[in-house]
């Protein structure tokens, strides 16, 4: 482990130098396996936040208070420590370019993590495919990768803050429902490829809205994180 970066009150990014790491695809994850002295093992999946072009592997972990793995990663791991990572894993929720068709990314909470890898990859490869991100967080303080996503060169990023909006907020201030999806997403006839990631309820709602707007289910890739973050207690 090289570095720990505080993202929000509940999330931290952890940067690893992984010798012998094969190239991953944006959107894939790794399994983190912790082994206690008595041999007890706990394993969780975390999305890779870094692009394939980035030098190091970055994971972003939401701390689940009664979790088995995330409190260790977020609070106890120190620079120089070694842990066991397996991956890259998963080929379904991974970036694909379909020339001529736009890519629409929808993230809720820590569901931004694999989408951030896709955005970075998109930029690193100077891809000509139009990409748009709709990211839902409770408040501006809960926006992971806030500086990066609100920077002038962030690309087509739309934020919605569902609980609290700062004074003068010009972004959206409501939940991602059918109406908001219709407003932000390309219309169904343009056949965008859609990636939706976040808590299970969020993903169900967004995927349902997309289908009701006429988007083909086969062009909607989903990844569900469970009740809140990247770990079920």
């Amino acid at each position: 482990m090289l570095e720990l970066i505080e993202q929000t009150a509940r999330t931290k990014s952890i940067v690893f130098d992984v010798p012998g790491w094969g190239r991953h695809r944006a959107g894939q994850h790794v399994d983190v396996r912790l082994t206690a002295e008595d041999g007890y093992q706990a394993q969780r999946s975390y999305s890779i936040a870094s692009a394939p072009e980035d030098r190091h592997i970055e994971l972003t972990v939401e701390r689940i208070d009664d979790g088995e793995v995330s409190p260790y990663l977020a609070d106890e791991l120190l620079a120089g420590d070694e842990i066991e990572l397996r991956g890259p894993i998963g080929g379904y929720f991974a970036w694909e370019e379909a020339p001529g068709m736009p890519v629409f990314l929808v993230g809720g909470g820590s569901g931004i993590v694999p989408l951030r890898a896709m955005l970075r990859h998109h930029r690193a490869t100077d891809s000509a495919v139009p990409v748009r991100l709709l990211y839902s967080a409770r408040s501006l303080d809960d926006v992971i990768y806030r500086d990066e996503l609100t920077a002038a060169d962030a690309g087509d990023v739309r934020l919605t803050l569902t609980r609290r909006q700062p004074a003068g907020w010009t972004g959206y201030g409501r939940r991602v429902d059918r109406e908001l999806v219709a407003e932000v997403c390309w219309p169904a006839p343009e056949r965008p490829l859609v990636y939706v990631c976040g808590p299970t309820g969020f993903v169900e709602a967004v995927a349902g809205a997309l289908v009701s707007l006429g988007h083909e289910a086969a062009r909607i890739r989903t990844e569900r994180f469970g009740p809140t973050g990247g770990e079920t207690p």
């Binding site: 994850h29 399994d31 394993q43 999946s45 397996r86 991956g87 894993i89 998963g90 080929g91 379904y92 929720f93 808590p199 299970t200 309820g201 989903t222 990844e223 569900r224 994180f225 469970g226 009740p227 079920t232």
Partner: peptide
């Protein structure tokens, strides 16, 4: 809301089947 999806067991399935199954 506790339910995950097949992405969450990609690692286990890869171990069992010897390749990505998602």
């Amino acid at each position: 809301n506790q339910a995950l999806d097949g992405n969450a067991i990609a690692g286990t399935l890869a171990e069992v089947f010897g390749g990505d199954m998602t």
